[in-house]
């Protein structure tokens, strides 16, 4: 079964202000979407709302066309950021308890994932490594055979090997079952190869979204001689994401390839890191992107 997630005009107001504002996004069936953004941008709030764990102030979230209201849809799996596990319990007890709490439960599948993680069901949760804990928590989510999973920072604090193993498990599940995934991450390098789409959240708002390969192919990094802003008139202002100048060179990130380049300028593909970081810098330094481009 494949499943779609739709977020329409979602907003969440806290006493301190808006945690989420006018959010629109669609996660298509059997695709993987990365939710990127600085701490406090609203990623966890959006995930918790989609899981039915917190209510929205405005807008709505739909799972396969049905509105999520104060309850987790049965076909949905949710992995919270702090992977809530009982440290004194044995692994097998965690599995039994999770099985009891879920009407859908594929015990052999959960057991296989735990075995693949090299976890002995008799060990206590507290003695597992960070990577094993994450893989146990993931097995407990995937044991439900969810059609849609929401993963809040599943790769945070993992060493490179554990990160690869978690991604192998997740992507195999996507390839086998057509599961739909929305996952938040800080690690952009991982996003590039694991995600179809990217959504950038900043201050509770969506500031960039689209297929990862389209975003990468559209953005270009132009490098040229040091120039005063007035000499950059050939750049089309709306396409300029960021201009950085040093004594030796000028670097410009554009969101659309320019038709031609003046002499002395070169044009390179931009990495996802460069695209996202330039956008984050551009908003934290108001006016920075536009200077010289207007």
């Amino acid at each position: 079964m494949t499943i779609q997630l739709e977020v329409r005009g979602a907003g969440k107001h806290h006493p301190s202000g808006w945690a989420l504002r006018d959010c629109d996004l669609t996660v298509d069936p059997s695709t993987v979407t990365a939710l990127i953004g600085p701490n406090g941008a609203g990623k966890s709030t959006l995930m918790a709302a989609a899981a039915g764990l917190t209510s929205l102030t405005t807008g709505e979230i739909l799972v396969n066309g049905r509105r999520v209201v104060r309850a987790m849809p049965p076909e949905l799996g949710y992995l919270a950021q702090d992977t809530p596990l009982y440290r004194r319990w044995r692994v097998a007890d965690m599995v039994d308890q999770t099985a009891d709490l879920n009407t859908r439960w594929d015990a052999p599948h959960a057991a296989r994932l735990i075995d693949e993680a090299g976890i002995d069901p008799d060990t206590r949760v507290g003695t597992l490594s960070g990577g094993q804990r994450t893989r146990l928590a993931l097995a407990l989510v995937l044991g439900k055979r969810p059609a849609l999973v929401l993963l809040d920072e599943p790769l945070a604090d993992l060493d490179p090997l554990a990160r690869l193993q978690v991604q192998q498990t997740l992507m195999t599940e996507v390839a086998t079952t057509g599961m739909t995934v929305l996952m938040s991450s800080h690690i952009l390098g991982d996003v590039q190869d694991t995600c179809d789409d990217l959504v950038l959240l900043q201050d509770g708002r969506v500031t960039l979204r689209g297929p990862v390969d389209v975003l990468i192919s559209r953005h270009r990094l132009l490098t040229g001689p040091p120039a005063d802003p007035a000499a950059l008139g050939w750049l089309k202002a709306p396409d300029v994401v960021e201009i950085r100048s040093s004594l030796r060179q000028t670097t410009v990130l554009v969101s659309a390839p320019p038709p031609g380049l003046p002499a002395g300028w070169t044009d390179q593909p931009a990495t996802l890191d460069e695209i996202v970081i330039a956008r984050l810098r551009a908003t934290t330094q108001p006016g920075h992107t536009q200077e010289g481009a207007a």
Partner: peptide
Amino acid sequence: TAREVVASAGINPNT
């Protein structure tokens, strides 16, 4: 198969 590549490389099957 896509599944085999994914299982070893941990990349998106659509890739």
